[in-house]
Every structure is written in structure tokens, then in C-alpha cells.
Design a binder for these strands. Structure first.
Length: 562
RNA sequence: UGCCCGGUCGUCUAAGGGUAGGACAGCAGGUUUUGGUCCUGUAUGUGGGGGUUCGAAUCCUCCCCGGGCAACCA
């Protein structure tokens, strides 16, 4: 059976599922408790969606739960705003957490853990500067050297650490280190820093603390406190696992286990909160929810559905090798879902006037058209048809090749849900630019009751000029021109921002929509026929609706003519 | 030239001693009142050398390549 199919249909297991099933079989666990541990210092992106889908999916599959735990141990970069947006994104993706927790909930307990380590002679206060500590750390190929403060007595350490908590010392003047092994081949075991002084208010604990635990001091212990069975993180945390286990062992905690999988990378975009933040701060994009951003909020604004994103996360798989997923897979998932749920509408982007010469002036007929051919329950709508219409400029060609199934002198096409028309004439201005196309319609070719016997190969979308509703449309392309912006920047010694695609946003301030669009709800997913999938933007006003192009339709014709 | 991971179609991902399969992308057709959807067909892959075995992507070994590790970030 295939993998890369939606999880409900998938039977092959990823390596974490195999581990879990073994644990369950051998009775190591009766149930599964995972956690999703974002740091509230930025917005969630599609890479987080992979982790969320994995963690929540595992719990769901094996009958357990998932805690949402904010890893908020660094007050300097973390805010309530980020917390709120992260919660919103997880919910929007369709997941429900068992408990909402914060590493900061455990600050008191973590402090006690530190005291415990000190008393066992497994932690000490170091007065060295960060430069000195770095120098003593050695290098991956050379062992480190002991700090002169390494031999302080437990009593002295405890006294000093208490005074650190009480705010007696300045930032950077002292830190607490675990006492492990300065010559370990694992750099993280060379007496890692576990508590540092930061005279900074915390978004939850306020001014209560001026010392904060580091990631290593907090993460595994939080897992253990919550009795997380499987703590799943990305590959770069692999060297931390030894430390993770060390704390659990020395503090005799619940034996949570850490497993690592490869993080998601995607072509033509970046997946680093730090760099995404730079795009936001430098005003290169419109904000964290700019529709070009790989953030959950950006994708949402762009018109991606939660279903499409979850489907994507199920298809990309979970493994340990580095990977770069093709953007086209995400786009496929979007089309797959949007095709089923989007309302079809006709919108002309680059209009040219079409005159139906044998249709009486001032007369209109309301024609019926299906809202979604994939879903009968979506119903029908009326579209006014008259003598003067807009069609797409690119749908007419004076001197067209044989396979061009659109308009040209003497050619016939179907106007979608209306009549077959035949082109008799066209008008150009003094610059040679097409201004009018003259056609006659065939009264017996009406959609649904066509007895004309005329075969029209092509079908065009159209909008009645007197009824045309002006909208703004924003079309997006990949954010970067380089497939791997960060790597390329490194290679060419430039900034990753040098590879921003200057044409990643193209706005049509005047596109012409059929009247139904004016009355459609603002959270509706659309397909503008023969164009693509579109979603209303938050910039819409009562005067002007704005739409974002989520993704184009597949276009075999465009491809063939490349 | 330390330690730790990893290497299967273009991109992902299965197969865990017994026919290398699926998805996306590609290509070629068919259907179609969206050049959409749908349907059919098709090409492309086990990094390399030795070894074990009746049989190796899978086990052993050497090599090659990629990634990670020297934040008081997570």
C-alpha cells in the first residue's frame, strides 16, 4: 500500500509510529501523551503544521492526548500576542489540545530541581564571563577545560544560586551550570548553562523571577512533569537527547523519551522564525500574515484551507533524512480540496469589449449556471446576459494557430452557460490595439437546450458590462527566486533577502466580476473560472472587494505554449 | 583526519533477506459547456567497491557524499 496518501488511507507506518506500537505492545505505555511545544516568539509556519499534525495525529491514532505547552523560558523575545496567535492557528488547523500549559508554570519546581542538582554536587555557579566560558568549552575536536569555579562546595553554590534568584547580581555576572564532563565528545555535555540571570519581565510571571532556566533545564523536565510519553522534536535537537536523559536520570523523573524527525523544508521559501521575523521587521512583506509567507496565518489569508494543509502534512511523510518538499505538492493539496468546495464565478481580468450584434440593445436575460459542478448541493445562480460583454483579451487572436480553441475571425466558441457565438469582425484603435470583438449569437444554442448542432471546441468566461462589478485581485508568486535562498546566500556570500522575488505580488486593481460576487460572503472560497482559486482578503472594504489568488488552475495550454 | 545522524525515481516516501511500489512533478492520450475536474497509459531510482547468501535497497566492510554539534536561543 502506498504511503504519501492521507492518513486515513495510509497503512505503512513512519518510524515514530513503529516505536509507539512497539512500546504499546511491550507494555511500556498504555496510552500516548505527546506535546506541541512552541516558543511564543513568532508565528507558526507550515513546518510547525507538520509537527502539529504529527503530534496530535499520533495521540489521536493511538488514543491519547496532546498538550499545548509554550516553551517560554526566554522572556526577552516572548509575548502574549504570539501566544494568542499560536493558539488561534492550532485551533484553526482543527486540533484540540488536552491541556494548555507553560514551561513558566514550572519555574518554582525547576528551581527546586536546580537546588537538588547543586546538593548532589551536579551543578555549580560560575562567575566566568560568557567569553571565558566559551573559550573553556573547547571545540568539537578538542576537549574543554574546567572552570576555576567548578570545585565550589554545594553549600557555597546553593547560597550563590539563592542570591541569584534574589536579584543580588547583575545579568551575565554569574550563571548556573550542570557539572557533567568537560571532555565529552558531545559539546552539550560540557557543563551546559542551565540558569541565567535576566532582569526582564516575563509575559506570564511578570517580575517574580530574574533567573530563567535554559531550554535544556526546562524542556525535558516539563515533559517529565506532564508524563509525556513521546517527546518528538526536530533533528537539530539530537545532541540534546543525552542531556535530556541525564536530567531525568539524576533527578529521578518520569522517563519521557525524546525522538527526532527531519524538519520540513520547502523550495523557494524559508522556514526559520528568525528570518521570517526579519522579512516582517524590514517591511519586505506586509506582516506575519502576508499571503506570500509560509506562515499558517499567511496561508490562511492566501486562501488555503486547514484540510488542505493537513492533507499536505500527511502526504509529506515523516523520516530522518533532510528533505525539501516541492511547492507543487502544497499547491496540489490546495486544488484538491478547493475544487470540491469552491463556488465558481466568472471574473474578467484584462477586458476587451464583445458586442453581440444580433442581440437587442438594452435587453437582458438572466441565465442559470451551476455554482459547483463537483457538488450539486451548491445550487445555481443567475447571470445577466446582454449585448455588451467583457471577455478576456487573451481569448481573442487575430491570427490564431489551429489548436487555439478561442475566438478569432470566423471562429465559434461557447460562452459559459450561455450561447455559442461566431466572430464576424473586430475593431482596433490607431495603435493596433484590439478594442472590440463583434460576434453573432446562435439563438438555438442556449446552454442546456442546445439544438444548433454547432460544435464549439472552446468555452469562454464573460461578464455583462452594465452589470460588471469592479474588484481588486492580488496574484502571488513564489516569495524567492532561489530554490534554496539561505543556502544560495551562504554560497554566494550574500543576504537571503537578496533573492526575494520582485514579482511575488501582482495586483489587478480593476477586474470585472459577475454580480453574484458582490453578495457573496467574505469567508467564501472561490474559483474564478479558467483562472484559479481566490479568497477574499481582509483589506476588502464595502466599496471594493479584494481577492487573493490562492493558486492557479492547472493549465495544460499555458504549459504547452511555454 | 573528533563525535552523532543520514543517503531509494526530478521531489517526497514505502519495501527491513524473496518481483523496488505509491504520491507530486513530467510526458502521451480519452472525456468535458472551465485548455479545470475525471479517466487511461508511460518514462525515470537503490551513491560506489568488496564480501556473506540460492537470493541483498535490506546484513558485514571500506570508501564517497550530505547534514548537525563550539548561543547565558529554542
Amino acid at each position: 500500500m502506498a504511503d504519501n496518501t492521507p492518513s486515513e488511507e495510509r497503512t505503512s507506518k513512519n518510524f515514530i509510529e513503529e516505536i509507539i506500537e512497539k512500546d504499546l505492545q511491550e507494555g511500556r505505555h498504555k496510552t500516548v501523551l505527546t506535546r506541541f511545544p512552541p516558543e511564543p516568539n513568532g508565528y507558526l509556519h507550515i513546518g510547525h503544521a507538520k509537527s502539529i499534525t504529527l503530534n496530535f495525529g499520533l495521540a489521536e491514532k493511538y488514543g491519547g492526548g496532546t498538550n499545548l505547552r509554550f516553551d517560554d523560558t526566554n522572556p526577552v523575545t516572548e509575548t502574549v500576542e504570539f501566544v494568542e496567535n499560536i493558539k488561534h492557528d492550532v485551533k484553526w488547523l482543527g486540533f484540540e489540545w488536552a491541556r494548555e500549559l507553560y514551561a513558566s508554570d514550572y519555574f518554582e519546581q525547576l528551581f527546586e530541581f536546580a537546588i537538588l542538582l547543586i546538593r548532589q554536587g551536579l551543578a555549580y555557579v560560575d562567575d566566568s564571563t560568557s567569553e571565558e566560558i566559551a573559550a573553556m568549552k573547547g571545540t568539537p575536536t578538542q576537549p574543554g577545560t574546567d572552570s576555576p569555579y567548578r570545585s565550589r562546595t554545594p553549600d557555597e553554590n546553593e547560597n550563590l544560586f539563592q542570591r541569584m534568584r534574589e536579584g543580588e547580581f547583575s545579568e551575565g555576572s554569574r550563571i548556573l551550570r550542570a557539572k557533567i564532563d568537560m571532555s565529552s565528545p558531545n559539546m552539550l555535555m560540557r557543563d551546559p548553562v542551565i540558569y541565567r540571570i535576566k532582569h526582564a519581565p516575563h509575559h506570564r510571571t511578570g517580575d517574580k523571577w530574574c533567573i530563567y532556566p535554559t531550554y535544556d533545564m526546562a524542556h525535558g523536565q516539563s515533559d517529565a512533569i506532564e508524563k509525556i510519553t513521546h517527546s518528538i522534536c526536530t533533528l537539530e535537537f539530537m545532541p540534546h537527547r543525552e542531556l535530556y536523559d541525564w536530567f531525568i536520570d539524576k533527578l529521578e523523573l518520569y522517563p519521557s523519551r525524546q525522538y527526532e524527525f527531519a524538519r520540513l523544508n520547502m523550495s523557494y521559501t524559508i522556514m526559520s522564525k528568525r528570518r521570517l521575523l526579519k522579512l516582517v521587521e524590514d517591511g519586505i512583506v506586509d506582516g506575519w500574515d502576508d499571503p506570500r509567507m509560509p506562515t499558517i496565518s499567511g496561508l490562511r489569508r492566501r486562501g488555503y484551507t486547514p484540510e488542505a494543509i493537513r492533507d499536505f502534512c500527511g502526504r509529506i511523510g515523516v523520516a530522518k533524512r533532510d528533505n525539501t518538499i516541492d511547492m507543487s505538492l502544497l499547491e496540489f493539496c490546495a486544488r484538491e480540496h478547493l475544487n470540491k468546495i469552491s463556488l465558481r464565478r466568472m471574473v474578467v481580468f484584462d477586458p476587451v469589449k464583445l458586442i453581440i450584434t444580433n442581440w437587442p440593445e438594452g435587453q437582458f436575460e438572466a441565465l442559470e449556471s451551476e455554482n459547483n459542478p463537483e457538488d450539486e448541493s451548491a445550487g445555481n445562480r443567475k447571470i445577466p446576459f446582454g449585448r455588451e460583454m467583457y471577455i478576456e483579451r487573451e481569448d481573442f487572436m487575430e491570427d490564431a494557430p489551429k489548436k487555439f480553441f478561442r475566438l478569432g475571425p470566423g471562429r465559434s466558441v461557447r460562452l459559459k452557460s450561455a450561447f455559442i457565438i461566431t466572430c464576424d469582425d473586430y475593431v482596433k484603435d490607431e495603435n493596433g490595439r484590439l478594442t472590440e470583438v463583434h460576434c453573432r449569437y446562435h439563438p438555438d444554442s442556449k446552454s442546456g437546450s442546445d439544438t444548433s448542432g454547432i460544435k464549439a471546441k472552446g468555452t469562454l468566461h464573460w461578464v455583462s458590462i452594465p452589470h460588471a462589478h469592479k474588484i481588486e485581485v492580488r496574484e502571488y508568486d513564489r516569495l524567492f527566486v532561489a530554490e534554496h535562498p539561505v543556502e544560495q546566500a551562504k554560497k554566494e556570500e550574500r543576504e537571503f533577502t537578496d533573492y526575494i522575488n520582485p514579482e511575488s505580488l501582482k495586483a489587478f486593481s480593476e477586474a470585472w466580476a459577475e454580480p453574484a460576487v458582490a453578495a457573496d460572503p467574505s469567508d467564501q472560497y472561490f474559483q474564478f473560472m479558467r483562472k484559479g482559486y481566490y479568497y477574499p482578503d481582509k483589506d476588502s472594504t464595502p466599496e471594493k472587494q479584494v481577492f487573493n489568488r490562492t493558486v492557479t488552475l492547472r493549465d495544460a495550454w499555458a504549459k504547452k505554449n511555454k
